[in-house]
């Protein structure tokens, strides 16, 4: 579904993405790596917030490296941000109404994420877990084909994190879409993702099935080096 072919991006002297090639199908993939390893830049190049210096990005067969953010949203590439981003001055319902005309879609997105009862609320009264779900509801209303979640579990208490993980997993199964999750810790992803991609200094360190990845992270941790970042949360 999504294919990156030798994508590179520099910011001044810093190489954020160094010749990244990656293929993702309708699967749930976790991306891990320390701060500044290029995870979020990778998201930004997929969504169009950052234009890559080199390389091509193929989505459903067409090159989208030059497409606008809006065009990519229309194609079904949707994302959340590391810092929760919602429209704070609008009610929960209006947050969804703004992005779709279709009432039934608004209702579906809010019910699916368990926010229907709270649709009249001011988002400032929501918990962080609910805000994260509202972000996902917004993506659902826009009919995602590829969902990019940037550290969705950060700052959540474990019960809320588990609930959110379940929601993500259910949506992934129901819609048969591609989901990519950025995380610091591999532990949140171990029960969720089938495949883990680890990044460091703009490069892919390994790309492996989750069991294998767990082993590699453990080995790296003991050996020092890269693992430090991956263990921080």
């Amino acid at each position: 579904m999504l294919e990156l072919r030798s994508v590179s991006k520099r910011f001044g002297g810093i190489v954020a993405l160094d010749n990244i090639s990656l293929k993702i199908d309708r699967e749930l993939v976790g991306i891990i790596g320390p701060n500044g390893s290029g995870k979020t830049t990778l998201f930004n190049t997929i969504t169009g917030h950052v234009k890559p210096d080199r390389g091509s990005i193929l989505f459903m067969g067409s090159d989208i490296a030059r497409a606008s953010i809006e065009d990519r949203v229309r194609m079904g590439i949707l994302r959340t941000f590391q810092q929760p981003k919602i429209f704070w001055s609008l009610s929960v319902e209006e947050n969804i109404e703004g992005v779709t005309r279709d009432r039934s879609v608004v209702e579906y997105a809010l019910k699916r994420t368990g926010l229907w009862e709270k649709r009249q609320r001011n988002p400032r009264t929501l918990t962080l877990g609910e805000i994260r779900r509202l972000e996902i509801a917004r993506c659902l209303a826009l009919k995602p084909k590829l969902l990019l979640l940037d550290e969705p579990f950060a700052g959540l208490i474990s019960s809320a994190a588990a609930e959110l993980g379940e929601l993500i997993n259910d949506i992934y199964r129901e819609l048969g879409i591609g989901v990519i999750i950025i995380e610091h810790k591999i532990s949140h992803l171990s029960r969720l993702a089938k495949r883990i991609v680890a990044m460091n200094a703009g490069k892919i360190v390994f790309d492996a099935p989750v069991e294998e990845a767990m082993g590699m992270v453990r080995k790296l941790l003991l050996g020092g080096g890269y693992g430090e970042g991956a263990s921080r949360g």
Binding site: H49, I69, E70, V73, R79, F81, K85, F87
Partner: peptide, 12 residues
């Protein structure tokens, strides 16, 4: 007004 970047990312 709230967040122009997010508005763009929401297909507005």
């Amino acid at each position: 007004k709230d967040d122009e970047t997010l508005a763009e990312s929401s297909g507005i």
